[in-house]
Simulated assay, not measured.
Amino acid sequence: MGNAGTPLIRLLCLLTEADTTHVWHGADHYSAVSVLTDALALIHQIPPESRPPHAIIATLRLAHDLAAHGWLDDHGEPLLQTLTHEGLHRLRPTDVEWLRPLVGDETLLAELELITHRWREP
Rank of each mutant, 00 (worst) to 15 (best):
R10M: 12
H54E: 13
R100Q: 14
A27E: 03
T59S: 14
T21W: 05
L66E: 07
A63C: 06
Q81D: 09
I115V: 14
V23K: 10
D73F: 02
L80D: 08
R51I: 14
A32T: 02
R90L: 15
L91W: 06
L99G: 10
L42Y: 14
I57Y: 11
I46W: 02
T59N: 10
T94P: 10
L60C: 09
G76E: 06
C13W: 13
L99F: 10
A110S: 11
L42P: 14
A39K: 10
T21G: 03
A27W: 00
L112F: 05
S34Y: 09
L36Q: 13
H89V: 02
L12H: 11
T59K: 09
L72F: 05
G87A: 06
I43C: 11
V103H: 01
G26F: 01
L108W: 01
E77M: 05
R90E: 13
V23Y: 13
H64E: 12
I46M: 12
D105M: 00
E86Y: 11
L79Q: 11
D73Q: 11
P47N: 06
Q81L: 15
R61T: 07
D38Q: 15
W71K: 04
L91E: 03
A32M: 07
L108C: 09
P47M: 02
L80P: 11
G70W: 04
I9V: 15
L83R: 02
D73H: 04
L112K: 03
T107G: 07
E97R: 06
A68R: 04
L114Q: 10
D38G: 12
L109Q: 08
E77Q: 13
R100Y: 14
L114W: 08
R90T: 11
T107Y: 04
T21R: 10
V23G: 00
H44N: 15
H85P: 00
D74L: 07
E97H: 05
H54A: 15
L83F: 08
D65M: 09
L79S: 11
I115N: 05
A39E: 07
W71C: 06
